[in-house]
């Protein structure tokens, strides 16, 4: 069995536990053994954009060292924010001077040597390939019209984008292979407001309203995301009168498609009514 070393992140151990359970079971059903990274720490969720803010690279790089200790060359993430911070810090320490300074600070750890590739679930599924996903998709997603909501951190900046930052198709490809009917909508690459939930909840509500309206207008019956913060905002910070569109994690629809988890009653009813 192929082994995958996996970085959960805080959200997947708390409010997004359902995402973790569904995904890990599905990934195992696809023939992979998943090993959780020992002693991982918070990724920091937002990447440090200031040139001198070295301290905030320490956490991500420490996780890369943990992966290196496991002999892993790839580190799988399910959370889009973890993917973004870890992969950007991995790029940051490709600069030898940055690497030297971070290693010097973490004198209690073995030196990071580079060479861990951070990989998000969507990339991993795309690499597995649509044929393999389609073969495994039983009962499949039965033509469910799904709008994939990418948000920011899977697409920006370009250096770590899982696909074209303005015109991504990677999630749609996965959903189509699993038997869904992907729905494109203009707001799928636009920010949900992210951590403004803590400082400007009203701005988040406006964004969430636009996103859900955009998805609903284009015919989506379900919105799928790979980011626990988008998921939280899209579900818990809706403005009054927003479309009552269900929101699920990519790993959950994967589990429904592979039959490792039943399609929830609410979703099954939607599909049943349409047919």
């Amino acid at each position: 069995m192929n082994r995958l070393v996996y970085f959960p992140g805080c959200a997947l151990k708390d409010q997004a536990q359902g995402y973790e359970a569904a995904t890990l079971a599905a990934v195992q059903a696809l023939g992979y053994a998943v090993q959780e990274l020992p002693r991982w720490n918070c990724c920091g969720t937002v990447y440090a954009l200031a040139q001198d803010d070295l301290m905030r690279h320490v956490g991500p790089v420490r996780n890369l060292i943990r992966a290196q200790e496991q002999g892993a060359t790839e580190l799988l993430t399910l959370c889009a924010m973890c993917y973004n911070t870890l992969s950007r810090s991995a790029l940051f320490v490709r600069n030898p001077e940055n690497l030297r300074r971070i290693n010097a600070f973490m004198d209690e750890e073995e030196d990071y040597r580079g060479g861990v590739r951070v990989l998000h679930l969507v990339q991993w599924l795309a690499e597995i390939g649509p044929e393999r996903l389609a073969r495994a998709a039983n009962p499949g997603l039965q033509g469910l019209r799904i709008g994939a909501y990418y948000g920011c951190t899977l697409l920006r900046p370009k250096e770590v984008a899982v696909d074209h930052p303005e015109k991504p198709e990677i999630m749609e490809g996965i959903l189509a292979a699993l038997g869904a009917e992907p729905v494109l909508f203009p707001e799928r690459v636009e920010c949900c407001g992210a951590y403004l939930a803590v400082t400007r909840p009203e701005a988040v509500r406006l964004r969430v309203g636009s996103i859900l309206l955009s998805a609903a207008h284009h015919g989506a019956e379900l919105v799928v995301t790979a980011c626990p913060l988008c998921h939280f905002n899209l579900r818990e910070r809706r403005p009054l009168g927003a479309p009552r569109l269900p929101v699920a994690y990519l790993g959950e629809v994967l589990a429904w498609a592979l039959g490792t988890q039943p399609i929830p009653e609410e979703i099954a009813r939607t599909v049943g009514v349409r047919r």
Binding site: N41, G44, R56, G59, M106
Partner: peptide, 19 residues
Amino acid sequence: CVACNTCTKACPQKLEVMD
């Protein structure tokens, strides 16, 4: 928390404080 591990290094009880 930035996972700098300074807390762990400061602990006289040798606890894994950052963890």
